[in-house]
Design a protein around this nucleic acid. Structure first.
Lengths: 343, 343
DNA sequence: TTTCAACACTACCACGTTTTCGTAAAGCAA
DNA sequence: TTGCTTTACGAAAACGTGGTAGTGTTGAAA
């Protein structure tokens, strides 16, 4: 049980000064070749590695980035993390992950925990509660301290920072358009409550597609669901009334529930009911029938977000105090993945 | 853009010494009430928070734990992370996540990156490649440095440390037994290649259940799959031959693929073919039919692993140098969740 | 008047690095 | 010998914190 060796210990052991050891290991020409080799050999033997914490303190850089997300047991978010991790690793950064659990308080707490020097920047997606409250002081505070923040997916216009999103509106438009193209006339939208920014945008796209095609925009066909458990009941009622022949669901959980409900009632998918879901997750791929989805590459979003953040972090070194605050909002492309739930 | 304020800055501003500020904030009685209040007010106004990095360096504690897992876009692993995160948060720890991508080199690299002071301990699940190579020097090294390690799920007997596992063997036994109880005679096992420790154990449980019930253990009914893509072909051949009437699959991806293949061939699940999968994930819940699974509560494993690790970390403070190395292997209970894919 | 305690604060050290600056010794020219 | 440069290294500061030990002043008891 030998603790990690430090410069000081090496110095003492070799009877030289700490600075000599440090310089020797960094191959400084200031130090004579003989001493240098001796130190290096000793360090290698004891497997010396500089202490990251000490380096962080000295350099005021932790080489790690904080991720705050609402959920982690969630296909989309885990792909984003994956994307972030890839880039971070490549640039020598670690990722620290905190889950807000869609709670405002946890989000604030987590940010405070990390903001005190533990990380160099944030990548985050807002919790539902935060979006609902519209209180972003914890984020502005962090930004004011000079810590770069990149938001993704669930973002807000109230904060000025880099963002990575998909064009929810036009993606929804495209999906609904494809339903219309295949002859559907009564298209329902199954969505969440409004305060989640992405839900709102997808609704806008849905509406626009209908209107552009001369179809009526009927409020009754917008089904707002707060909890998956209530989904089945609501859906089955509407299906009984034969109120619609196609559904655009804002996530795959809704979509698969709808399909199952329809099947129970003897309706065939896609013949009697076409279904498209947002978010291309694992369920859509393996459901029966497989579900046509709007792909939303979490990995790409993560890649991009990490790149943007790291660029910001490393740019700060150069033009200190002189930030060019022209924040960028990157839009990641989506496309429709046609599967069995549409014709 | 004001950087975070430090003790030093407060001291300078208020024209007292740094120690006075520090003590005032910690409410030491050494400092006069007047000064104390002045300092506290000032600190509050400028939202002073001690710098974590400095604290870590001083205390030789980072209050963060490292997680090394093979994959993150993976239901089971993400539930484990979730479980770890919950407990970590409760105890004031952050979690740093590294993905080994099932690569030995990445696993080693990630561990080295974190082992230099960034974290207080590891929670990890071995990468496939590491299990295959049987090379664990990177882990022993970390342990020798006095850093506690907790392994979960994919563990090895070659390393002495705390572990959290499920009883793969008896869980498999139970699953196969239930198939036998419902009258199945020819039960296939669809598994991965052997070097993944859990695969081996599940095979053992499968075999024991058969033998205990006087059924023949037939090597031909053990289908080893390296890649999901090849699954369908292999399965359909065997199904054509009507070689089996039930399947025990070691993960839900295999299970759902098998069901889909059977359906394509006109076979009914569960009438013609009963299916049980290991790992209760999201696919099993939403597949058609829903799949009977052996639940393997990742969250519980994460909870337990985190608790064990944090206990080790905080025990080190007390009896320094005197570790009681009676390592514990915690076995998490599993149970069978009956769904539509069995009768 | 001397001594001692209480008070209110400051000095200093350690954590592990890197880096700037300083300087002793050695070499060389004048 | 003196003065100058080069070589080879060491001292110290800095990053931010917190604890221990020390210092000086005041008031009161002996």
């Amino acid at each position: 049980m030998k603790r990690k060796i430090t410069l000081k210990q090496i110095a003492k052991e070799l009877d030289v000064s700490i600075s000599t050891v440090s310089k020797s290991l960094r191959n400084s020409l200031e130090i004579g070749e003989e001493t240098r080799e001796k130190v290096q050999a000793f360090a290698k033997f004891y497997n010396y590695k500089p202490n990251n914490i000490a380096l962080s303190l000295k350099n005021r850089k932790t080489k790690s980035i904080g991720i705050i997300i609402p959920e982690i047991v969630h296909y989309f978010f885990s792909t984003v993390i994956n994307g972030i991790e890839q880039v971070a690793n490549e640039y020598g950064y670690s990722v620290v992950i905190c889950v807000s659990d869609d709670s405002f308080d946890k989000e604030v707490l987590n940010m405070e925990m990390l903001a005190n020097g533990s990380i160099d920047g944030f990548i985050m997606s807002l919790s539902k509660e935060t979006q609902y409250k519209g209180d972003f002081h914890h984020i502005t505070e962090v930004i004011n301290q000079g810590m770069p923040v990149v938001m993704f997916d669930r973002v807000t216009n109230d904060i000025l920072c880099d963002k990575v999103i998909i064009d929810d509106k036009s993606a929804a438009y495209e999906a609904v358009q494809s339903l219309i193209d295949s002859g559907r006339k009564k298209i329902a939208l199954v969505t969440t409550v409004d305060y989640v920014s992405v839900g709102k945008l997808r609704t806008d796209g849905y509406e626009k597609a209908l209107l552009d095609n001369g179809l009526p925009f009927n409020e009754d066909l917008i089904i707002k669901i707060e909890d998956v458990d209530t989904c089945e009941i609501t859906i089955s009622e509407l299906l009984h009334a034969r109120a619609f022949d196609a559904v655009f669901a804002v996530n795959e959980l809704f979509a698969v529930t709808i399909i199952k409900t329809a099947n129970k009632m003897g309706l065939k998918v896609p013949e009697d009911l076409a279904v498209i879901a947002f978010t291309d997750g694992i369920i859509s791929k393996y459901s029966t029938p497989t579900i046509t989805t709007v792909s939303q590459s979490g990995e790409k979003m993560g890649n991009k977000a990490a790149k943007m953040l790291i660029e910001r972090i490393e740019a700060e070194d150069d033009d200190d105090e002189e930030h060019n605050e022209n924040y960028i909002t990157e839009v990641i492309e989506t496309h429709l993945i046609k599967r069995e739930s549409t014709d």
